[in-house]
Every structure is written in structure tokens, then in C-alpha cells.
Design a protein around this nucleic acid. Sequence first.
DNA 1: GTCGTGACTGACACTGAGTGTCAGATTAGA
DNA 2: TCTAATCTGACACTCAGTGTCAGTCACGAC
Lengths: 205, 205
Amino acid sequence: MSAAPVGTREISRHAVRAELARVAFNRFCLTGFDQVTFADLSEAAGVSRSTFLRYFGTKEDVVLFVFDPVCGVITDALDAERANQDDWSRLRNALESAVRFLVGDVRELVTILGLIEQTPALCARVREKQAEWRPEIVARLQKTTSSTDGSSVIANVRVAAALEVLWIVLGRWGASGGQEDLGRLLDAAFAAFSTPACQQADAPL
Amino acid sequence: MSAAPVGTREISRHAVRAELARVAFNRFCLTGFDQVTFADLSEAAGVSRSTFLRYFGTKEDVVLFVFDPVCGVITDALDAERANQDDWSRLRNALESAVRFLVGDVRELVTILGLIEQTPALCARVREKQAEWRPEIVARLQKTTSSTDGSSVIANVRVAAALEVLWIVLGRWGASGGQEDLGRLLDAAFAAFSTPACQQADAPL
DNA sequence: GTCGTGACTGACACTGAGTGTCAGATTAGA
DNA sequence: TCTAATCTGACACTCAGTGTCAGTCACGAC
């Protein structure tokens, strides 16, 4: 999955990208996403506007590129699991891998989630990523079974639902300042699919 | 729910909006969404660019404003139902109301769905609408029950999943040229939540 | 060492979305 | 008929994102 940088060029590019994102992120938190322009960012980072734009195609990417590996993490996790489990269990475990990957720096992730939540443009881009990931995850979910027709409505619905769970849970977790236990939150969310579906009394946290 | 135009000003505004959208829609289908500019649209419609922009805040809205009433349709449907049904049944029936509302002109809806599918910007905006609708639908789903804490993870997950179903089903239906039966598609999709969750052999269509 | 290739950079020009303002025309309603 | 609210077109403006171009730099081959 991981696109580890190989070659000095790639290493350099990766490092520059990280540094630009770091500087930009501070600006966004300070002033607000919409108020900051590429001109501001490039000035703060000490590069030209052209150069900044070469590293990040859009302003949203400057914040959200940290989520790019998540799709790979999920698909890898699905591959690694025993295939005799049911879909929901496999998806739940794969999501646990994803959140474990994301929660490297709790403080940073909480800040990013806060920034996303209060910026419609970022929310929209997040949802776009979510949609991009779905086909690949569906393929992995179905790979171990016989029917690999790739057009299964049920698998698509389940993956879409699971990805919604991911963001709902991350939203909750971020709102709690990173206090709540992500595993419990995932369980509570997935209970929506396993409980009798009549009453929605949340699973005891 | 419906914001019926009242007063001559409102009627006029509504009619102009519809006509502008009609002209624009033809252009989009002919040339492609991204290739058409507001200058093109306003010229084709015989108004100034300023005026066109006053009727539609963004280019996406020109296409997607037809979906605006859907949230109201869904919440109304949820209100009208017998509350003794389980969440999934209520959501499924509410979604049926939504698609029945949308399928007024089959041909037009199929065209719109096709346009959306092949235009990332439109997909993103659709997902934004979907996210805007969720809180209100969650509130209505929970209204009839005791727990109205408004922060129920389970209700949020179920509504989010149902809205994903809506677009997945509409996507399928659009891809089939409006041939397939929407009720059956909804049943097939909701089976993702009721079947044993182990095998994903689609329900027999 | 140096030469050529390919990538990186900054400068610049450009298109187009979206915002805001302003004066004049139009219309609703008293 | 008069007045106030609204609609309209014209214009200027900011900023995102694309594309080009010439100069610079790093790397590998010879």
C-alpha cells in the first residue's frame, strides 16, 4: 500500500510537502481556511505561489492529504483478515486499523478535524475522498468470496455505510477533544446495523 | 414542507429561475458542465451575467436545485408513518417517497443523474446536500421515540446509511436508463442491513 | 571533469468563479 | 398617482487554478 519515497528526488519532494503543509496549517488555524490565500501561504513558507501550487493542487489538499493513505490502510486490513467473518465485523476491524493509523498525533488530528468541521469546503472534499475510496474497498471486501461481479448493491451499501461511520465516529471523537475511546465509538456506531433496528437506545458507552 | 411561491414577485422569480435552469441544462448536456461558463449561460438565456448569478449562487446549483425539496419530502414521510415500525422500514419508506417525488419526468432525471455522475464537482455538491439533510432527518426519526437527545450515534449512522442508499440506488437506476424498478432496488439495497451480513449474494432481483 | 537529461523554481499571463457596488428601470401596493 | 422595494445590467474586484517559459540545479553516463 505505502508509497514510500524512493530516490532523493522523492524524498526531497516529500519533505518539502510536509514542511509547506506544516506552515500552512498554522496559518489556517490562526486565520481560518477561507481567509487564507495561496499568496499568504507561499509568502509564509518562503516560496513562490507557483511552487506552492505545484505541491498542492488545491487549498483543500494542503489539509487533507494526510488522509490519503487511509484507503490503503483499510484495504490492507481487509486483506489481512480471516475471511470467515461477516462483512460488518471485517469492516469494523478495518476501520479500527484506519483510526489507529490516523491517531498518531492526537492533538494534531483533533485540530484538523475541528478545522474540517467548520469549513464546508473541507467537508465537501472529505466526502469526495470517501466516494473515491469506495470502489476499491468494495472490491477487497468481495475478493475473498465467490461473487466478484463488482456491481453488488449490497457490498456497495455496506462499504458506504461503513465509511459514513468512520467520519461520524471521527467527528464525535474530535468533538470530545480526543478523549473518548475510538474502539468503543466504533462499536456503538456499528450497533446501528446489528441491534434489533427498532429502538435506537445507544449501546451503553 | 413546500415553500410555495406566494406573491407576484415570488411567482415571477420562480418562473425565471426555472427557465434559466432549462436553458442552462441544455447547454450542460450539449457541451459538458465544466466547459460551460456563466458568460455562456447568461448569453444563451438572454440576461446579464450578474442577473444569472443572482438566481443561482453557483454553477452546481443550476443543476441540483431540483433536489432541494427532497429533504422536506423525506421528513414529511417520516412524520406521516406509523411510529411502531422499525427504523429501517421507516427510512426505506421515506426514501420511496423521495424517489417517487423525483421521478416526475423519467427522461429528465436520467439525464441529470448522468450529468452528475460524470462531473466530480456535481457529485461533491450532491454529497454536501446529503450531509446538510442528515441532522433534520435524524431529528424526525427520533421525534416519535423517547430519546430525543439529538446526539444519538445510532440514529445518525442509520440516516447516513439510508442517504447513501438513496444515491447508490439512484445511480443504479440512472445507469439502467430508468428501466429498473426503484422499489425493488430500494429493497435490494436495504437488504444489506437485514440479511445475515455474512454472504453478500444480492437479493434476487 | 563535463556534458546532457530531466526535474525544480519563479515570474508572468490568463481564464473563470464568485462578490460587491451603483445607478437606473420596473413594479407592487397604498 | 406616488413611493418604496425590488430587479437589472454594468463594472470593478479578489482569488483559485492552469499553463507557459526561461533559468537553475542535481544526477548519472562517459
